[in-house]
Amino acid sequence: MSSLSNFKKSALILMLASSLAACGDNDNSDPIEDQEPVVVVEPEPVVYEFTITFSNLTAGQPLSPLSVIAFDETPPWKFGETASVGLEMIAESGANEEYLSDENALASVSAEGGIGPGETTSVTLLVDAQDVLNLSFAAMLGNTNDAFTGLSSVDVSTLEVGSSISRTTPAYDAGTEANTETADTVPGPAAGGEGFNEIRDDIADMITMHPGIVSNQDGLSTSALGAELKFDNPVSKIVITRTQ
Rank of each mutant, 00 (worst) to 15 (best):
H210S: 12
P37H: 01
L126G: 00
D102N: 07
L125N: 00
K237Y: 03
T169Y: 10
D146M: 11
E49D: 12
A22Y: 14
S29A: 14
V46I: 14
A190K: 04
L63E: 10
S3V: 08
V127K: 02
V235R: 02
I238K: 06
E42C: 11
N28L: 12
L66T: 01
G80D: 13
P234M: 03
T241L: 10
L225V: 02
G162M: 08
N233D: 12
G188H: 01
A91H: 05
E160N: 07
M206A: 12
I238Y: 04
G195D: 13
K8N: 12
L100C: 09
A17R: 08
V41A: 13
R242K: 11
N197R: 15
A191Y: 13
D25V: 15
K9V: 04
L87E: 01
E92G: 10
Q217Y: 03
A171S: 08
A227N: 06
S122W: 06
G60Y: 01
T53H: 07
L87T: 02
K78W: 06
S157T: 06
G188K: 09
D202I: 00
S153H: 07
A191H: 11
A70I: 05
V156A: 11
S10P: 03
P45K: 06
T222F: 06
Q244K: 12
E112C: 09
I203S: 11
Q35N: 14
C23R: 13
S93T: 14
S84W: 13
G60N: 02
I13R: 15
G226K: 01
P43D: 09
T169G: 08
A59L: 02
A171C: 08
P211R: 00
S122I: 00
V68M: 05
L57N: 03
D128M: 09
Y48H: 15
P37K: 00
L126R: 04
A17T: 07
G118L: 00
M140W: 05
T243E: 03
K78V: 14
E177C: 15
S18P: 12
S110A: 07
V186C: 08
S5F: 13
F148R: 02
V156G: 05
N28M: 06
F50R: 01
N145E: 04
D72A: 15
T58V: 08
I203E: 15
E103Q: 15
K8I: 07
L12G: 03
G118M: 03
G162E: 10
D155M: 03
L133M: 12
E103T: 10
L66C: 04
I52D: 00
S10W: 09
K237M: 11
T82V: 14
I13K: 11
L125W: 02
E33L: 05
D232H: 11
